[in-house]
């Protein structure tokens, strides 16, 4: 049975097909949620809420491939997380002049594994983390981020700048610790 057939069955309300889709997507979706919401329990709860919305809106879905399905479900999860963050008021509004303009090395993230990037990102404050996730990982521009979060584009830029500088520091710290460990060995 293909993914398209499972989608068709899930649309009809087949519990088995819904379970199959959950098994396929839940692990990755949980990591998406955890990237935005640090708390594991909150992230899991948001993922379940996102799956509820996914199943309820499944009737309007036109299957266009596995990647499209994944990005659609991921978008639902991200929206759930952003709504949660908005409710919690965890965004840190940093004005532009305060923001440091420490540039992150372009290829530094490429050299890191997904797990390492993940561990770095979840250490960022909520505001920085959200903008960094949306801009660097999801590929949105500042206009879209500003509209999505209800902030100005300048604030989005400053948040990203802050996030990059903080990551730079963290990477340096890690390298120092890594170097120390290497020299101790």
């Amino acid at each position: 049975m293909t993914e398209a057939e499972y989608i068709k069955e899930a649309k009809k309300g087949s519990s088995a097909a819904q379970k199959w889709l959950f098994d396929e997507l839940s692990g990755r979706m949980l990591m998406v949620c955890r990237r935005y919401v640090r708390n594991e329990q909150d992230a899991e709860e948001l993922m379940l809420d996102g799956f509820c919305k996914f199943y309820s809106s499944l009737s309007g879905l036109q299957y266009q491939g596995s990647a499209a399905l994944f990005s659609w479900v991921k978008r639902i999860m991200i929206n759930e997380c952003l709504m949660f963050l908005r409710k919690k008021h965890t965004f840190v509004i940093v004005s532009e002049h305060v923001a440091e303009t420490l540039a992150l090395q372009e290829d530094i993230l490429d050299n890191l594994s997904a797990a390492e990037i993940f561990n770095l990102v979840i250490q960022l404050p909520a505001g920085y983390r959200t903008v960094f996730n949306l801009y660097v990982i999801e590929g949105m521009n500042h206009g879209e981020i500003a509209a999505l979060l209800g902030i100005s584009e300048g604030t989005s830029k400053s948040q990203l700048s802050k996030a990059k500088s903080l990551l730079q520091k963290m990477l340096l710290q890690q390298n120092i610790e890594y170097g120390k460990r290497k020299t101790q060995q």
Binding site: D23, D110, G139
Partner: peptide
């Protein structure tokens, strides 16, 4: 953009962390 896309693919493929306990799908379901 290319870097972002590669980073996105890398991060989207992440389904768990090496040190973390495995996600209990049955309980979540």
């Amino acid at each position: 953009e290319k870097r972002s896309n590669s980073l996105m693919d890398k991060m989207d493929g992440l389904s768990g962390l090496p040190g973390d306990a495995a996600f209990n799908r049955e309980a979540a379901w």
